[in-house]
Design a protein around this nucleic acid. Structure first.
Lengths: 340, 340
DNA sequence: CTACCTTGTGGTATCGATAACACAGCGTGT
DNA sequence: ACACGCTGTGTTATCGATACCACAAGGTAG
């Protein structure tokens, strides 16, 4: 049997005895079609299993109905929720969503952005790798493709933005540790060229300063944002002459690795080291409500980011850029301990 | 400044003083272009920021370089890994991947499949909602779109398939419970129209039969495959006159809910109820290695499924369908207890 | 009865790329 | 010197849809 993959509007036209323009009108629910004709055309469509090509339509209409979502790590439970939210809003708004995982690699990010330009996506929701993504983003702007930054800002890029309150959240977490009596509090973070890391560091420093605690540079260690980085970072801290009594990690995955390092040193969280971090791990917390976290509304970052994007694409957005800072939720569990 | 979004091959041709065919040849690395011409064209491309449209190219070439991945729940850590694997292989093979989340809803599945047909994706990797997806899949086949089933088979659909060993894995899990002395072992599962549920049930029954244990229908309860379903299912079991002493759940999310139900009844896993399930939860297990699971190679399902698909699209696959059953890894942790 | 509008439909150009073919210019073997 | 082949380039048709304009048939106003 013939594959209907190559059934075109002309085939439908021939079978139903009208021109392709009329078929097009039926497909697009345009007014000017007599009920009788419409019926005949619809029947032909059903018979032939015709599906209009979005390629051809996109080419002539100059819009594809496709968006892209670019994140650094889909397997991070935080971004997984972002993905779900974004995908859902896109579908409801009548758009398809292409997912790209950059693996936090600037080169891959550049490549996927080029790909998305070639695909003529109408807009992009992106959690950029770092400030160094600026070049790619400027290229997007020059190309005339709308985009919304989520989770991370990039200095010099004036697009719509949806982020969590990193500075405020970090401050609350660290103040919590201080209130429990800690005065040597470390921070395991990633490079300062990622806005969330920068902002969380600012919150960390602000909390220390407000409490009159000194800022000890040896307590701020830099790591990759995955369990391995957390492991290495925590190991480094534990080997200091005067190790910290509490640690704040820049995100959930780093915290997991950090805990593993603590255990590897035959110590325990929170008894020997108190721990707090950004971002919850939904399913882990259900099983074992252990980590004291600043839980960001991940799914909302995805949904809201996509909504702002769609509004802008459809010209329903104000000219002014919109910067949304979503509050995070402070969830106290065991890992921060009961104090010293 | 003009947005280069509408820079076409003709603009490049004009600027570099050649015909668009020559530009096309440069873009496609075809041989027959003099070094000098090539240089001029490349410079014009750079100057104008030209990016060839995949729409136009796809239309004329009759291929889009796009695949689709359709899963029932991207937020399930199992499928998250599938997504990562699939996305990665697709990118390396030079394809883009559109992600669709059906939320285990047959209607949404039908819609997204139609969308993907309209997009003229070259192939689809799909974890179908259930056996009732058969109609959609037949439509795909008739349309001439290649697809590979992952995680779940569908009776009557003879495509390439990559699944985990559900029957074998289930049997091992239940035998483990039996070896620990349990003889009232329950199974919380989903509808029998999902192949994994069916196969795991077969494994469950086989293990009981092999041990000479009776099959008590009241110990097999049906639930939705999420924590809520697990909670409800376990609650139902705990309220039996003679509750089970051990429970096998059809997947990880169901297990989480089941545990919550046990706790809600002021009982404990594994002391009061032993628990085993399919599918690990990577980050949860790192934090708290608690669940005894049959860990499927989720990322491999994604990578291998996509590889098979690409091979088939590119005509490098044998005519014969390929059915790959990947072994799962049995990981004993605490939730199954030390026996009675 | 004529001018004009509305309705339903068709014809043709077009979106941006490539396939298929054509062809000019030059080198080469005999 | 001629047929032939190769190199580099251009011309035209085409992919599948829609925009835009044209137009016939019938209704309505004056």
């Amino acid at each position: 049997m013939a594959t209907p993959g190559n059934v075109t509007i002309k085939d439908v036209a021939r079978v139903s005895g009208v021109s392709s323009m009329t078929v097009s009108r039926v497909i697009n629910d345009s007014e000017r079609v007599s009920p009788d004709t419409r019926r005949r055309v619809e029947q032909a469509i059903a018979e032939l299993g015709y599906v209009p090509s979005r390629l051809a339509r996109g080419l002539i209409r100059q819009k594809t109905g496709t968006l892209a979502l670019i994140v650094p790590d889909v397997a991070n439970p935080f971004f997984t929720l972002v993905v779900r939210g974004a995908e859902d809003v896109a579908r409801r708004a009548g758009y398809r969503m292409i997912l790209c995982d950059t693996r936090a690699d600037l080169t891959i990010e550049r490549e996927v952005i080029e790909e998305m330009l070639a695909h003529r996506v109408e807009g992009i929701v992106i959690a950029p790798v770092s400030d160094r993504s600026k070049g790619h983003l400027e290229r997007l702007a020059r190309f005339g493709v709308q985009f919304v930054l989520i989770d991370r800002t990039v200095p010099g890029i004036e697009s719509d933005v949806v982020v969590g309150d990193s500075a405020g959240g970090a401050r609350v977490l660290v103040e919590h540790l201080i209130s429990l009596g800690h005065d040597r509090i470390a921070f395991i973070t990633e490079g300062n060229d990622v806005s969330t890391a920068r902002d969380r560091r600012a919150g960390y420093e602000a909390a220390l300063a407000a409490a009159g605690l000194p800022l000890d540079p040896s307590l701020v260690v830099r790591a990759t944002v995955d369990p391995r980085g957390g492991f290495d970072g925590m190991s480094q801290l534990l080997e200091l002459d005067e190790p910290p009594t509490a640690v704040f990690t820049v995100n959930n995955l780093v915290a997991l690795g950090a805990i593993e390092a603590v255990r590897a040193h035959e110590l325990e969280v929170p008894d020997d080291i108190a721990l707090v971090c950004f971002d919850d791990i939904e399913y882990a917390s259900r099983l074992y409500p252990f980590l004291t976290v600043m839980a960001q509304p991940a799914e909302t970052l995805g949904t809201l980011g996509t909504q702002l994007l769609v509004e802008r694409i459809e010209g329903r957005a104000p000219e002014q850029r919109r910067v949304v800072v979503l509050p995070a939720q402070f969830v106290v569990r065991k890992s921060s301990g009961d104090g010293r």
